[in-house]
């Protein structure tokens, strides 16, 4: 290894260390509040990818910084650089590392994350909530309890919930940012998504606890939102009993 490349490696290590420290320090501020178990899987994947991205970023930036500082010429260069078209070990190393990194990313957090989500989805369902989007409102039905709500989505904490999402007119998307869960509402189709709220909370204290349409659907797309309220099981049952029953 040439001396120059050695300096780059030192620079890379320094940058990587700084970057990883920054990721660890900043992740709590970067990732929003989380209110569902499934969100943990997403956040873990996010963090892993950040950790993996840092060394890649750091290497390219280290090479760029070093090259620009070391090899730049003031004014027009009077000579050509060495006629180096290829460098076997460097290319081989690059291809090996980039392929290996890609495979790592595919396996973890890609496939492992998918499997975790699927395993989570496969658990016994405590509550089914049907969510139907129409321009520009959501109709929320609790078929087991024969309750319909149009103004808010109320959920019990720790209950495993299946959302059955559909649409009457155009594409919409069901998204609760603090749950990290999203699925499109497609006319003529029922899509499902699962979530297990992990703590109580409501839209009034945190805007990320909202059911937001996330697929452009026309004029009031951004207003196609209902507040979400996650209650204790008891309170949820009380809420249900206060609602008008429909058949």
């Amino acid at each position: 290894m040439s001396k120059q490349f050695f300096i780059v490696v030192i620079l890379w290590i320094v940058l990587t260390a700084a970057g990883e420290a920054l990721v660890i320090a900043l992740t709590p501020f970067l990732l929003p509040s989380r209110a569902a178990l499934e969100g943990q899987i997403v956040d873990d994947a996010f963090r892993t990818l950040m950790m993996l991205a840092v060394p890649v970023l750091a290497f390219v930036v280290a090479m760029l910084i070093y090259s620009v500082l070391r090899f730049r010429r003031r004014g027009e260069p009077t000579q050509d650089g060495p006629a180096m078209r290829s460098h076997g070990p460097f290319i081989a190393g690059w291809m090996l590392v980039s392929t290996a990194l890609t495979i790592v990313m595919i396996v973890h957090p890609g496939i492992t994350g998918m499997n975790a989500l699927r395993a989570q989805a496969g658990k016994d369902v405590d509550l089914v909530v049907q969510v139907e989007g129409s321009r520009w409102n959501w109709k929320i039905t609790y078929p087991q309890h024969k309750v319909i709500s149009r103004t808010e989505l109320v959920l019990p904490v720790d209950g495993h919930i299946r959302f059955e999402v559909s649409s009457t007119d155009v594409l919409h998307a069901f998204w609760i940012p603090s749950f990290r869960m999203k699925i499109d509402a497609v006319p003529g189709m029922m899509t499902t998504i699962y979530a297990t709220p992990s703590k109580t909370g409501s839209f009034s204290s945190d805007h990320k606890i909202r059911l937001q349409c996330a697929e452009a659907c026309g004029i009031l797309h951004d207003k196609m939102m209902v507040p979400v309220r996650v209650l204790e099981q008891k309170e949820f049952e009380t809420w249900l009993s206060q609602q008008v029953k429909v058949d």
Partner: peptide
């Protein structure tokens, strides 16, 4: 895509950069 970066970085290495 990484190969493009490989090529760009490898080309600049030991070059006479004219900014």
């Amino acid at each position: 895509t990484g190969v493009v970066f490989l090529s760009a970085l490898g080309t600049m290495w030991l070059g006479r950069l004219w900014l």
